[in-house]
Design a binder for these strands. Sequence first.
DNA 1: TTGTACGCGTTATCAT
DNA 2: ATGATAACGCGTACAA
Lengths: 362, 362
Amino acid sequence: MDEEESGSGARQRPATIVDVAETARVAIGTVSRYLNGQSVRPANRDQIEAAIQRLNYRKNALAAAMKSDLTNTVGFLVPRLSEFHASVLERLSLALRQQGRALLSYCHNDDAASVMGALEFFSSHRVDALVMDARPEAEERIRATARAGTPIVFYDNNLAGPPVDRVLVDNRGASHRMVSHLLDVGHTRVAVLTGNVQHWTGRERFEGYRQAMLEHGLTINPDYVLDTHWNEDEAYSGMGRLLMLPTPPTALYCCNYNMAMGALRMFAERGVRVPEDISIASFDDVPLFALYGGGITAAAQPTAKIADTIAGTLAARLSGRSALQPPLNIVLNCDIILRGSVKRPRLASEPSPAAQPPTSQL
Amino acid sequence: MDEEESGSGARQRPATIVDVAETARVAIGTVSRYLNGQSVRPANRDQIEAAIQRLNYRKNALAAAMKSDLTNTVGFLVPRLSEFHASVLERLSLALRQQGRALLSYCHNDDAASVMGALEFFSSHRVDALVMDARPEAEERIRATARAGTPIVFYDNNLAGPPVDRVLVDNRGASHRMVSHLLDVGHTRVAVLTGNVQHWTGRERFEGYRQAMLEHGLTINPDYVLDTHWNEDEAYSGMGRLLMLPTPPTALYCCNYNMAMGALRMFAERGVRVPEDISIASFDDVPLFALYGGGITAAAQPTAKIADTIAGTLAARLSGRSALQPPLNIVLNCDIILRGSVKRPRLASEPSPAAQPPTSQL
DNA sequence: TTGTACGCGTTATCAT
DNA sequence: ATGATAACGCGTACAA
């Protein structure tokens, strides 16, 4: 008789807790208590369960959030869903789900207006906490948000000052180890494709390069330092210029995956062989690097660990356990994965190895 | 004097529309009208703007949603954030944002319980619409949701029956074209790594293979058909078995990117050269394929177009314009991108080209 | 343990 | 155009 009708396209009102209470012939309060896991008389419990089933009832998370001042929702803001960020997002989303929380994600595309828009959006939706790459243009807003008591976690990129938690990787150290490896093998002409120096991450990775060079008694050749802004196309053309240099580099260090892609594209175009003609190493590890040629030496960010650490931090802050603790500054290590793309440079006196076919094309 | 105090860690209550009304010395209704873009006396407008600024007020999206029965939120459910899904998500999120809507995303990892959990979550959060890969185990729930008037869009995977919109790609056609290409070049021993036949997508891609084979007068050799479940590791070991066959295939068609990766890994391990020893083509296009060796021939799904089409469909449904229209069934084409991984098979009489070094290692 | 009634921050409906 | 007020669905004191 009272079957839900028609599906005529009109939006139907979902059942409410009142409907459940009426159907089960109990009071609203009783249903609420049942829903929140408190004790209820067994007979009533059965009635309520039956009613929920019958009415296809789902608690209205919005109304609940409004009452409890808790949305169980976390904002996630990144420039884009690169493999790195997507991987962190997927894992973080899983970890938070186990805490009963969900993620609201947003990409800002390195656009300042989008960053501010995202922050507006998040506060409008009353997220309980915020996970984001640090953005200088939003510093004031971030401070205000933190002051208002919303836990914030910076990840990937950093920004000194705001009293927020940080889950970062040792960009400088990993860079340093990577470039040191190139130098230890015998390279002296090591070029670097850097990210935007506006980014802490970009500065740190470059600094690792710089320190390694200096420690090996080398000077920084400005011709070998290209700020190609994390960008594949800029890296591609930048690499083209590097190859035209009278004394081209014998090794290349790319501060991220995209720029490595650009460089590899240029290598392919010019017939430059890795590692015979040039050695290459890159930040970030992606499937491509395991398979390309003899593999590309890379610094792998521990995405799972990053996500889990962020989730743990949020759990602590939101549970109130660590509400008043000073900001955390967690720095995770990257693994340097040695593959076949780095080789001792050949001396000017040595013949080109072009005549010897590689044992495998891969 | 009434400065917001301390930031002691305690959660602060955000300002409400009531606070704004009081500060601006106008009625709540006036503020609401202003916020929703209706006309307000200029003097009042200025007062309200000042108050909003002063109190750092943001509209509570939850309360608004509760009243208007519109959350301006769309659920997005996929198995995982692979490059394909991440790319669609990023673009879709952008397009929806321009409609004033946001995306709530969820990964189900091919786990039936997670799928149901996601659907619960979405209805609890009262999403206005749903975008998902079709999942058979959720059919009843999907029908119920659709019946209740929530627009649903299936994408990537399909499932016949439920009256929902569909934005899919021509999996069968793309497969057919791809395999036909392999056959046209002269291959007859073409192996296929298929996805799970539980998935429509898997069945369609296999069907394209089957049709192409039959049309070329070939029979399907069961030894050459491996269901490696979209999975890299299974593809890796499956490829190992294929290579051990007395008469191994001369060409391989992979129904997705992950399986191609697995196969390439096995090739690298066994020193199998592409395309000298075996030709390979794959569904999905990823950066790797452009760079690997002479490039890998691939079927590229139009992710941007998929996302934009979904966004358009949602806009129409949610605006009520097409509320009563019959379900849409949009099928987009894939581009077949020819690269260097496919080559005429050498005849038994021809010598192995092992002695001729490739012109470039790439 | 259960029932009642109020309030969360909006929007929308009324008079004015 | 504005002001007052009734909902929306839920949680929760408080009384029973």
